Computed example of a mutant assay.
Amino acid sequence: MSIRPQTLPKARAQTIQRMLGLHDKPNPFLRGNDEGVTGRIVSHLRAAELYWVSEDMAALAMSSGSQLAAARWATADRPSPCGLIYFDGGVGTVQVSGTMSGPVQALAWGPSPDGTLTVTHLMTREHFMGGAQVPFPEAVPPLVAIREARLPVTVEPVPFVDLPAHEGMKPPLPIVSALAAAWHLMQQPQLVERGSVEPGKADARSLRRSGLPSDPVTLVSLRRQYVPQAREGEPSGSRVYRHRWVVSGHWRDQPHGPERALRRKTWIPAYVKGPDGAPLLSTERVNVWRR
């Protein structure tokens, strides 16, 4: 069962409560963790801003993330210093224990004592219970922490292939690249629509009584129609194109900031280029993704 935007605050609160029951012992659901991992994850979840990403947006993050070669993980590059982002449909799988693999459906991030950024990979309780024998199932939180990654906080982007291992495991590149892509895409209002969803009234009252956060959830989804504002390489002068062709989606370093001296990764969606009415070249297969 997936978590909906209105129920994400409650799921976060129940996860905090059940993890606090561990009394800062090593998390029994998290593979290879240190003694302070429970307190660190709880601290990140308490301070986290909440994001719920629609299934088509999650798919775009996965697809566009595969075209990124590097990323920065500094505070200025994140939508918030600490966050919890739930991807409807998930963003890939990781090895949980032995031969068992599980889907990653949410990611939480926050600072680590060593100055790196901790990204906690989370699976829903239903998926975890479907693949594990747990002696006390009532103690399993709605979001189960199954893996950690430590990402360097640097001035320059770090290539994904150079990311260091944590406790003998390299960060799963499809997942961390999807997170980096999601952060970039969330800064593109012409492509991405952001809204706010409040928790249900009963849940909000219960959370306030418990002294737990009842913050609204930022809903992130693709706009229904997108028309590029500026197309690269439009014909100019006396050059005349007699065909149309498809330009694949790609990342571009977009100038911004004072005197446009800074660069920000911007996703340019696929579009058809060339004069209206001209024949469409079909030398390549074109996959059309409709909502």
Score class of each variant (00 low, 15 high):
T99K: 12
P81I: 06
M1R: 13
Q190P: 01
L68M: 12
G98M: 09
R244Q: 12
A47K: 14
P174Y: 10
I175L: 11
R264E: 13
P172S: 11
V37R: 03
T75L: 04
S112T: 15
V246D: 01
P216E: 03
W251L: 01
W289N: 04
Q188N: 11
R72Q: 12
A76D: 14
R4W: 02
P135N: 10
E193D: 12
A48C: 09
G233K: 01
H44K: 04
R208A: 14
K265F: 02
S80C: 08
G200L: 14
L173V: 15
S238Y: 03
R244I: 01
A11G: 07
E138D: 15
A181M: 02
A48T: 11
R40Y: 10
R224T: 11
V176C: 07
M62H: 01
H243S: 11
R244Y: 00
L222Y: 07
V286F: 04
A71M: 10
S66N: 02
F128N: 02
R263Q: 13
F128A: 09
M169A: 08
V272A: 10
A139R: 13
E138F: 11
L163K: 02
Q17A: 14
F136R: 13
K25A: 15
M1L: 11
K273W: 07
S196L: 15
A61R: 03
P275K: 03
P9I: 08
L84E: 01
I3Q: 05
P9A: 06
P103T: 10
Q133F: 05
V227G: 00
E284T: 13
Q187P: 00
P279K: 08
W267M: 01
T7N: 07
V288P: 01
T154R: 14
Y86K: 04
L117S: 03
G233H: 04
W245H: 11
A261H: 07
P157L: 13
Y51F: 15
E167L: 15
I268G: 01
V91T: 08
R260M: 12
L84P: 04
R223Q: 14
Q95M: 05
E35A: 15
P103L: 06
E198S: 15
T266G: 00
G257P: 09
V240S: 05
L143V: 12
W52G: 03
G32S: 14
A165Q: 15
V91R: 00
A74H: 07
E193H: 10
L30R: 10
V197F: 03
Y271L: 04
T120M: 05
A181P: 05
R205T: 12
L20F: 00
A132Y: 05
L143Y: 11
S64H: 03
S282Q: 14
M62T: 09
G168L: 06
G233N: 08
L281W: 06
T120A: 15
V197H: 00
L50C: 11
V227I: 13
I16H: 03
P258K: 08
L122H: 02
P213E: 06
M19G: 01
M123D: 08
V155E: 15
L68G: 01
D34A: 13
K10T: 14
E232T: 11
R40D: 14
P103Q: 09
S210G: 09
D24K: 07
G39H: 04
Q188P: 10
